[in-house]
Structures are given as C-alpha cells and as structure tokens.
C-alpha cells in the first residue's frame, strides 16, 4: 500500500508542519520500526501543541526533556523514558514523527 507522506527534507522531516496527520506519523514511525502506542501519542500531542504555541521545535534534546518535564512531570520528562519511546536522538526522532522542523541544535 502506498504511504501518504508529504514532502520531506533529506533527513525525513516534513517541509510543512501543517501537512502532518496521525497517519503520516504512523508511516514515519514505521520507517524506524517504531509502533506508536498511547505513550508515544502523548508526547507527539505535546510536541504539536508546543509548536503551535511557540513556533519552534525544542532546539535540543535537553530542552525537549525540559519541555516534557514542564508539562508531564519528571516520570515522563526524563531522557531515559523518552529514549525508550523515541530511540536515537529522542528530540529528532520525536519531532520527525510529530511533523515538526528539525531541532536546530541536535547533531
């Protein structure tokens, strides 16, 4: 089945955050063999809201963790929890799936 994924850059981030939809998220996640659960969706929703309000992606992993901690507390706002959900560089992986631009300071 053809995957509905809008235009993306060379690192797989959407060119336009408005073209995101949950099915886009499922397809992008599948590329990294991530099956989205309720825990993932909670973070994705948080990132979508964050972007709507501040018009930036959390610029680095540490600030991603801070933003999650601010909203959901320390149990979820810590790097191990987020690393388990979004392997690799969690801020990058999560922003890619949530349709946000690439975090500026994630190498």
């Amino acid at each position: 089945m053809a995957m509905p994924v809008p235009q993306r850059n060379n690192e797989g981030f959407l060119e336009n955050a408005d073209e995101w939809s949950p099915s886009v998220a499922i397809n992008i996640a599948a590329e990294s063999e991530i099956l989205l659960t309720g825990k993932h969706w909670e973070i994705i929703e948080l990132l979508r809201q964050f972007y709507k309000q501040y018009e930036i992606s959390p610029p680095s992993n540490r600030l991603f963790v801070k933003a999650v901690k601010e909203q959901l507390g320390e149990i979820k706002g810590n790097s191990i929890y987020l690393m388990q959900l979004f392997p690799g560089t969690p801020a990058k992986t999560a922003c890619r799936i949530a349709g946000l631009p690439r975090p500026t300071n994630c190498l």
Binding site: Q53, E55, A67, E70
Partner: peptide
C-alpha cells in the same frame, strides 16, 4: 518567518 514573539515565549519554559 516564525514570530519572534512566539519563539521568545518559550524562554521561561527552557529556563
């Protein structure tokens, strides 16, 4: 462009 006013509003969240 993105609004610098919006971007700036994340400052306190980030610390």
């Amino acid at each position: 462009q993105k609004s610098v006013e919006r971007n700036l509003s994340a400052a306190t969240i980030f610390g």
